Computed example of a mutant assay.
Amino acid sequence: MTATTLVLHNVTLTAEEHRLVEDVSLTARPGEVIGLAGPNGSGKSSLLRTVYRVMRPAAGRVLIDGHDAWTLPARQLARTVAAVVQEPGTGIDLSVREVVAMGRTPHKRFLDGDTVEDAGLIHSALTSVDAAHLADRPFDRLSGGERQRVLIARALAQQPTLLILDEPTNHLDIRHQLSVLDTLRRLPATVLTALHDLNLAARYCDRLYLLSDGALIASGPPADVLTPQLLADVYQVQAEVAIHPRTGSPQVTYLPGVLTDS
């Protein structure tokens, strides 16, 4: 499996008369973990939606290995791109194993059953998110964090070369946040993820793209993007940033109070 190159070229996204994202360009090279950061409403989720073809760009292009994502056949796209969205599914009357097995659908013909290989991939995906013990449980009876892990397992079982995740650590306790991000870091795939936790983004992402009000404010290695001045400008908070002595990653410490324009 060869990781995918993703390029967003001058992408603008609108909803009715409202401009959600304006003229944003982004590159994710094979095997990289790229993070989107920014306040609520900054355009992170909208950018992700245009990659997995829920929101069509009003302008610009989304290129997957040089091909326009919006012209790819649906089956080819499903074999390339997997997405984990913010809202964990509910109302799904299936077992956990059956939910994760849905990730194998793009690799099958209609009405094909699960093979021994499929069963192994499903078990491996569940194990990687510490959810193998949940395999026979009804999906709808899981906690929010358990559902999130199962949906990540479904995406892993799909064996994508490009994985899109919108706040994958939502609902997860600290142990599972670290475990899931460790798993993503080891994947033979390109990863584009939105993350609110800037310290996790600094630790696990090769590069960050910082958004505010639909505009790209800064991009580059975490140490170049997570600066006190940029955090003050974008988040209106005071923060100190130091290099962690053990991980070598920037570590953000927030100071009391928020900044105002006055």
Rank of each mutant, 00 (worst) to 15 (best):
V81M: 14
V81W: 10
A82P: 00
A82R: 11
V84W: 05
V85E: 11
V85P: 03
E87T: 12
P88S: 09
P88E: 09
G89M: 03
T90E: 00
I92F: 15
I92E: 05
D93F: 13
D93V: 04
D93K: 05
L94Y: 07
L94V: 05
S95N: 04
S95I: 01
V96Y: 03
V96P: 00
R97T: 06
R97H: 05
E98I: 04
E98Y: 02
E98T: 06
V99H: 02
M102C: 08
G103C: 11
K108L: 00
R109M: 05
R109I: 00
R109N: 05
L111C: 08
L111T: 05
G113S: 11
D114N: 01
D114H: 01
D114C: 00
T115L: 14
V116F: 06
V116T: 14
E117Q: 14
D118S: 02
D118V: 01
D118C: 06
L121G: 03
L121S: 03
I122D: 04
H123A: 15
H123K: 10
A125V: 10
L126H: 01
L126S: 06
T127S: 15
S128C: 09
S128Q: 15
A131M: 02
A132N: 07
A135W: 03
A135Y: 01
A135F: 01
R137K: 07
P138M: 06
F139E: 07
F139Q: 06
F139D: 07
D140V: 00
G144Q: 07
G144M: 11
G145F: 00
G145E: 08
G145V: 10
R147Q: 15
R147A: 11
Q148W: 12
Q148F: 11
Q148M: 08
R149L: 07
R149H: 11
V150P: 05
V150Q: 04
V150M: 06
V150E: 01
L151E: 06
L151R: 03
I152T: 11
I152D: 07
A153Y: 08
R154N: 06
A155H: 14
L156I: 04
L156S: 01
P160H: 10
T161L: 12
L163D: 12
L165P: 14
L165C: 14
E167T: 12
P168G: 13
T169D: 10
T169F: 13
T169L: 09
T169A: 09
N170I: 00
N170C: 05
L172T: 02
I174K: 02
I174L: 15
R175F: 15
R175L: 09
H176R: 13
H176Y: 15
Q177C: 13
L178G: 03
L178R: 10
S179N: 15
V180I: 11
L181I: 12
L181K: 11
L181P: 12
D182V: 10
D182S: 15
T183D: 08
